[in-house]
Amino acid sequence: MPADGRFPAGARLALTTFTTLPVRAGRIDREVAGVAMALAPAVGMLLGALLAGVLLLLAAVAPPLVAAAVTVGAAALLTRGLHLDGLADTVDALGSYRRGPAALEIMKKPDVGPFGVVALVVVLLVQVAALAELAGRSWPAGAAAVVAATAAGRLGVTLACRRGVPAARPEGLGALVAGTVGPLAPAVGAVAVALVAVAAVPGRPWQGPLAVAAALAVAAGLLAHVVRRLGGITGDVLGATVEVVTTLVYLGLVLSA
C-alpha cells in the first residue's frame, strides 16, 4: 500500500476504535495508529453530534433526567462500553497501590473491584446530572456542550499517545499507539475543541475553553501518575482518559450556569 494510504486507513481505524460504526478495518500498524489517534477528536465531534441529537430530541418529549440517562446509555452503546471498562480497570489498578507488572495483572482481571465500581458510579452520576442540565439549554448551546465534552475526551487520548509517552506492555493497544502522535495534532485538536466549547455556555464564552483546558490539565497529571505506577499507557488507560476528561468538561460547563 502506498504511504499516503495511511490517512484513509487511519480514519477507518479511528472509527472502529472509538465507535461501533460498521466500518471495515484496513491496514493496521503504528503509522496508521498515529493517524487514528490524531483523528480521535474529530471522531469525538461526530459521536458528540449524534449524542446531542439524542439528548435534545428526547428532552422535547421526556423529562430532562430521562433524556440524560438515555444519552449516557447511548454513549456506552456506541462505544461498546470500552471506555467505562477501561476506567474501572485503571482505577482498580491504581487503588491497589501496586506498581508495574503487579498492577497490570489487576487490570487484566475480568472482575471489577470496589474502587472501579465507585469510579463508574460517580462518573455516570455526574454525566447524567450534567446532561440533564444541558438538556434545558437552547439548541446551539446544549448541542455545543455535548460535542465539546465528547471531543475533549478523545483529545485526551491524542495527548496520551504523544511522542515520549511509553507503553506499559509490549503488546496490546497501548503498544500500538503509544508515542505515535506528533506535537501538531494535539495543538490543532485543542483549538478546534475550544472553539466549539465557546458556544456551550451562553454569555460566558470563556467558560467552555476553560473547562476543556482544566480537564486536560487534570488528565495530564493523571497520565504522569499512571506512567510512574504502571510504566506507561495501556488501552484501559486510554479509556479511562476518555471518561475522566469528558466528565470533567461536562462538570465545568454546568458550574454556575
Results as ranks from 00 to 15, higher is better:
61 V>Y: 08
61 V>M: 08
62 A>P: 04
62 A>V: 07
63 P>Q: 15
63 P>L: 15
63 P>V: 11
66 V>E: 14
67 A>E: 04
67 A>S: 07
68 A>F: 14
68 A>Q: 09
69 A>S: 14
70 V>C: 12
72 V>N: 02
74 A>K: 05
74 A>S: 14
74 A>P: 06
75 A>N: 11
77 L>E: 10
78 L>I: 11
78 L>N: 09
79 T>G: 12
80 R>S: 06
81 G>K: 03
83 H>Q: 13
84 L>H: 02
87 L>W: 01
91 V>F: 02
92 D>W: 01
92 D>G: 04
94 L>W: 02
94 L>F: 03
94 L>T: 00
98 R>I: 00
99 R>E: 05
100 G>D: 05
101 P>R: 06
101 P>W: 03
102 A>S: 12
103 A>D: 04
104 L>D: 01
104 L>M: 07
106 I>Y: 02
106 I>C: 04
108 K>G: 03
109 K>N: 10
109 K>V: 02
110 P>L: 15
111 D>V: 08
111 D>H: 06
112 V>E: 05
112 V>D: 00
113 G>K: 01
113 G>P: 03
119 A>C: 14
119 A>Q: 02
120 L>F: 15
123 V>A: 05
124 L>D: 05
127 Q>K: 12
127 Q>A: 08
129 A>M: 12
130 A>Y: 01
131 L>A: 06
132 A>F: 04
132 A>W: 03
135 A>G: 06
136 G>H: 11
137 R>P: 02
137 R>T: 11
138 S>Y: 09
138 S>T: 15
138 S>H: 10
140 P>R: 14
140 P>S: 13
140 P>H: 08
142 G>N: 12
150 T>C: 12
151 A>F: 06
152 A>C: 13
152 A>D: 10
153 G>L: 06
153 G>P: 11
153 G>D: 07
154 R>H: 09
154 R>L: 13
155 L>Y: 07
158 T>E: 09
158 T>M: 09
158 T>Q: 12
159 L>E: 05
160 A>Q: 02
161 C>W: 01
161 C>M: 09
162 R>E: 14
162 R>Y: 13
166 P>N: 04
167 A>P: 02
167 A>T: 09
168 A>F: 05
169 R>G: 03
170 P>G: 15
170 P>S: 06
